[in-house]
Nucleic acid binder design. Structure first.
Length: 503
RNA sequence: GGCGCUAUCGUCUAGGGGUCAGGACGGAUGGUUCUCAGCCAUCAAACCGGGGUUCGAAUCCCCGUAGCGCUACCA
């Protein structure tokens, strides 16, 4: 007895075979209520990759219908984070395009026109319920184990009822009238299913303040902007039948949908601004010194895999190999350890010049005056540090002593390496280093080895004792690199200071 | 409470009626070495449970269970 499902899309599951006639158009539609979320960044990436892979267009739309929470600052931050990641958009944002404006608060007349059509056709109606009444209805529905929170009671208001409410000063919302037929949701990653209409309630599509809400604006803009594929997070899955219903009532064709799994924290919950704060902010990773290439590679592998052997993907490879068909259905935990590994890898791939450039802002941020340093010396330091950088900001603890003598010696290191003979070793080493000619890598090295051999001292003991005197810590680059980079005078001065400290 | 989605090592995943269930991160051990990092080698580590179907099920079907998401005049 059920009427046939509505909303059947015209294309096949993958949508990747029958696209010859139409250009692929996808969009990312953040709401400007804070920084760019790591999950949004992944959604943006998937959209962007899909667009680039198919030579389509990637559109940036700003969903700011929640006026109370949206800010310009947030909008700029989102642009900036996206640009930093290299996810350039073809239309929208501050860039404009043939479907301008791309900011929803500037498109109200478009929504208004559609709402009037809905009202005129009887597919939408005014609802005069107050928030308090709604709360009560919700509570009751829940108690009665109903599957809908709102019962559609204002569908049947008489003209007299409306006038009475209006006289009371109540401002109505507009609700969409949900259909009686099941709605078919065809999802590229999750498959097709029919949603029973009695689980769908009459959503508010225009607030009482006149501002249209998400489910209306989203689908209207997707259609108006000729979006062919809506790729978004699974949290929107339940909105999809509502949006399809709205489009159907308006006689509009819906795009294809692809809901990608959520990004989870290590307890399996959705990563959110609310619970995780700046941990989910793309800008935070930028500030700590993660490379865009690493972020993209990492985030792409959350829910997507190419085969059973490849982990490292350049952006070009990602574009070439990315397919929606290979996106998984289950959520993925954001594992910072793996991001760290990738970041180390990508930093390692930077040549010295590029790595030096990348690291300079991090020195400056910590007040290290790199401008005063010869470029050559900076590059030598970076070379000496080698692969010891997981994040660019690690450059600071790794190299601080190249710019200023240590002000303290790490207690743990001192305890382990500065035994009773530390003073003697330092004194002797000082003499050795004072005498080497010239003060260069090979000469210093052989002089040191000669010393340890003659005195029958363990290399480690001598080296670590000296390392702490010079750097204040027990780890770091080759000690010979450090010696030469510091120069004889500075080395001798630091040895003297250490001897005083040891007493 | 309702509705929906999901389920392979700790994590990201490959595979998929017959495999020693593969790789990577992380972990452990050993090697290289002046330390750390790196690199090399080795090891531990998984098909949510129960029923079917089948000669054979981790794979197909059903039922559970668990987790998550949504449940706003947020998006």
């Amino acid at each position: 007895m059920n009427p046939p499902p509505v909303g059947e899309p015209s294309r096949s599951r993958l949508g990747e075979t029958s696209r010859a006639r139409h250009q692929i158009r996808v969009r990312m539609a953040p709401s400007p209520t804070g920084f760019l979320h790591i999950g949004s960044a992944r959604t943006a990436l998937f959209n962007w990759l899909f667009a680039r892979h198919h030579n389509g267009a990637f559109i940036l739309r700003i969903d700011d219908t929640d006026a109370a929470r949206s800010t310009d600052a947030s909008m700029r931050e989102i642009y900036e984070s996206l640009q930093w990641l290299g996810l350039e958009w073809d239309e929208g944002g501050e860039k404009g395009g043939p479907h301008a404006p791309y900011v929803q608060s500037e498109r109200r007349d478009i929504y208004e026109w559609h709402v009037q059509r809905l009202l005129a056709s009887g597919n939408a109606y005014h609802c005069y319920c107050t928030p308090e009444e709604l709360d009560a209805i919700r509570a009751q529905s829940r108690a009665e184990k109903q599957n809908r929170a709102y019962d559609g009671r204002c569908r049947h208001l008489t003209q007299a009822d409306k006038e009475r409410f209006a006289a009371e000063g109540r401002k109505p919302t507009v609700r969409i009238k949900m259909p009686d037929a099941p709605i078919r949701v065809a999802d590229i990653v999750l498959g097709t299913r029919d949603i029973s209409p009695d689980t769908l309630e009459d959503e508010v599509i225009v607030r009482s303040n006149g501002m249209p809400s998400y489910n209306l604006t989203s689908i209207i803009d997707d259609v108006e902007m000729q979006i062919t594929h809506v790729i978004r997070g699974t949290e929107h899955l339940n909105n999809t039948p509502k949006q399809i219903a709205i489009a159907n009532a308006l006689g509009l064709n819906v795009p294809q949908f692809a809901h990608i799994p959520l990004v989870l924290d290590n307890t399996g919950r959705k990563l959110s601004k609310r619970h995780h704060g700046t941990l989910v902010a793309v800008s935070r990773y930028r500030e700590e010194g993660y490379l865009p290439a690493a972020m993209l590679n990492f985030v792409a592998r959350l829910g997507w895999a190419f085969d059973d052997k490849q982990e490292i993907f350049s952006v070009e490879e990602l574009i070439e190999k990315f397919e929606l068909a290979r996106v998984g259905k289950s959520g993925s935990v954001f594992d910072i350890k793996k991001l760290d590994w990738l970041n180390t890898h990508y930093i390692g791939k930077l040549d010295v010049a590029a790595r030096t450039d990348a690291v300079i802002p991090f020195w400056e941020k910590e007040g290290i005056d790199v401008v005063a340093e010869p470029r050559e010396r900076l590059e030598s330091i970076v070379t000496a540090v080698g692969e010891r950088l997981t994040k660019l900001q690690d450059i600071v603890p790794q190299t601080r002593y190249f710019f200023a003598a240590p002000t303290e010696y790490e207690p743990k290191a001192v305890k382990k390496w500065w035994k009773k003979d530390a003073r003697d070793i330092l004194t002797a080493l000082g003499a050795v280093l004072e005498a080497v000619e010239p003060f260069e890598l090979e000469t210093v090295e052989s002089a040191m080895w000669q010393y340890t051999e003659e005195r029958n001292i363990k290399r480690v003991a001598a080296m670590q004792t000296l390392r702490i005197a010079l750097t204040g810590t027990s780890f770091g680059p080759s000690l010979f690199d450090i010696l030469v980079l510091l120069g004889r005078d500075e080395v001798l001065a630091r040895i003297q200071r250490a001897i005083q400290f040891v007493k």
